[in-house]
Simulated assay, not measured.
Amino acid sequence: MAGSIYLVAVGSNRRGRHGAPRAEVAAALRLLGGVSAPIIASAPLGPSIRTFANSAALIESGESPPDLLARLKRIERAFGRRAGRRWGSRVIDLDIVLWSGGRWRAPDLTVPHAAFRDRAFVLGPLRAIAPRWRDPATGLTVRQLHARLTRARAAPNPPRST
């Protein structure tokens, strides 16, 4: 599978051997290579209370999606990530979000990432490096998905008193 392109989301909300979460994300981006998005801060999901540092990388690889996932898991372990509760604090989190081959479905991997359309902390960095990339499920670009998710919405009108 020569020349596949991947969008990989990168996040951290715990200090590791590289330093604060922002430094962990920067180190992971250097290791992944390719084109990287700016690092942003975002609120945590779930029970974690620590702010996340998030970014994304656009990389080229001859690896299949499962082979890239295996490499990303090795990187996570090398950074000190341990299995833990879902949405808990983590030194590094690396997720395949999109793949130039379109869709991939296996028991341990789904591409596109199942929740990326609902996460501004993923779509924002992706928009910085691949705004025209189309989601194979919806046909919308990353820019369009981000705009739909983050557009201002009018507050509901309060009920009228009679």
Rank of each mutant, 00 (worst) to 15 (best):
R81T: 03
R85D: 10
P21Q: 02
H18M: 05
L109M: 03
R153G: 14
S64Q: 06
R153P: 13
P38F: 00
P112G: 11
E63T: 05
R14L: 06
A57Q: 09
P125W: 01
I75S: 04
V35K: 13
F79V: 06
D95G: 05
T110R: 12
L72A: 05
V8D: 03
I39R: 01
L68P: 08
S161N: 11
R143K: 12
N54W: 01
F116L: 07
A114D: 14
S89P: 15
G102D: 13
S12V: 02
I96N: 12
A37G: 07
V8P: 12
R105T: 10
N54K: 01
L123D: 04
R50C: 12
N13D: 01
G101S: 09
I5V: 14
A20C: 07
W99V: 13
L58S: 09
T51A: 09
N54E: 00
L140E: 11
F121N: 01
G80W: 04
Y6V: 11
P47N: 05
G11D: 00
R132Y: 05
T138S: 13
P44A: 05
V97A: 06
G19I: 11
W99N: 10
R85A: 15
T110W: 02
V111G: 04
F121C: 03
R15L: 09
D108M: 03
L149K: 09
L94P: 07
D108V: 09
R74S: 09
S36E: 09
A155K: 13
P44N: 08
P158D: 02
K73C: 03
R50G: 07
V142G: 09
S12T: 01
A20S: 14
R153I: 15
L69G: 07
A106P: 04
V25Y: 05
W87I: 05
G11W: 02
G62K: 12
W99I: 13
S48V: 04
I40H: 10
E76D: 00
L109I: 06
V8G: 07
G11Q: 02
P131R: 02
P112D: 11
Y6G: 13
D108Y: 05
T51N: 06
G139N: 09
N54G: 00
P112I: 09
I92R: 00
P107R: 04
R151K: 15
R15F: 11
V8R: 08
R71Q: 14
I75Q: 08
T162G: 08
G139I: 02
Q144D: 15
F79N: 04
I39E: 01
G88P: 06
R86D: 04
L72F: 04
A56M: 07
N13G: 00
T162I: 09
G46L: 04
A128L: 04
A154S: 14
R132M: 11
L7Q: 13
R74Q: 15
A28K: 06
S12I: 00
L126N: 03
A114E: 14
D67G: 15
R74K: 15
P38I: 01
G102C: 12
I49D: 13
G88E: 05
H18D: 06
L145W: 06
V10Y: 00
W87P: 03
R148D: 14
V91W: 01
S61V: 10
G11H: 02
A154Q: 10
A83R: 13
T138A: 06
P136S: 01
L29C: 14
R15I: 07
L45I: 07
R22K: 10
A37Q: 08
A147W: 13
Y6K: 10
R127M: 06
G84M: 02
I40T: 08
S4F: 11
I92A: 00
W99M: 12
